[in-house]
Write a protein that binds this DNA or RNA. Sequence first.
DNA 1: GTGTTTGCAAAGTGTTTGCAATTTA
DNA 2: TAAATTGCAAACACTTTGCAAACAC
Lengths: 137, 137
Amino acid sequence: MTSTRHFSLAMDRLRNAGLRPTRQRLALAKLLFEAGDRHITAEQLHSEALQANIRVSLATVYNTLHQFTEAGLLREIVADSGRSYFDTNTSDHHHFYFEKNGMLMDIPNHEMVVNGLPNPPAGTRIARIEVVVRLAE
Amino acid sequence: MTSTRHFSLAMDRLRNAGLRPTRQRLALAKLLFEAGDRHITAEQLHSEALQANIRVSLATVYNTLHQFTEAGLLREIVADSGRSYFDTNTSDHHHFYFEKNGMLMDIPNHEMVVNGLPNPPAGTRIARIEVVVRLAE
DNA sequence: GTGTTTGCAAAGTGTTTGCAATTTA
DNA sequence: TAAATTGCAAACACTTTGCAAACAC
């Protein structure tokens, strides 16, 4: 707790991930990580940034989301062919998907479990198991 | 087993689904259903049709896949943001997804089970549970 | 004949890319 | 100032749509 500490949590995250803490990355990191768990698309994050008066291009939002994902700060979720979701909760969990409006929601921790995992076909390994519970009205 | 029966299985399927058995629908139904379980995208089916000398437009392939899905002859699978897969196996089962080449494969019947289904949020019902086991090399 | 289906080409959506200008360290 | 990052606009991949011509019954 030194008095010369100027670095925010967001800045630390970026530094630790080896990403230069540029104005755009810092602002996006704050939007993403300072509001609890989020599931967001590139276009949603972009318009949120613009509303918050953060000038950033959509291309940079895409770049940033992918860089954060590679750095392990985000997880990409496939729930809808047509767009990608990014989840700020990178721990092992699954999702509800509301078909009505395209929203995602975490399924409360370990409430649901996958049993009897199959052996992966020869020459492959399981990279991830993704469970999406699709909800209709 | 009357001797005046001219209708193929594919034609029966279409009639039962209330779809006119047009040349295009019949040909696509044969490609889809006469070769065991398949996981196919619209573009794959289109190029397969062209190779088999079936003249059909990509738009018609899309229309047909959606009509077959609505009629319950196919199931749409979300495994990759960017394209839709259609599965000729409409029974309850899950999939391996090969990240390497974008292919899907059924997970052998009931080898894997989801336990502890969560209650759906108020005002919703579970429309489907989709499990995708993503495979890397 | 009448309503359905098809094919084309255009438009739409979400995403990626090339590259010059800007920013960071 | 050297390397990384950004923004723009164009390109992309996949999908949907509007409408006139062709087809099924």
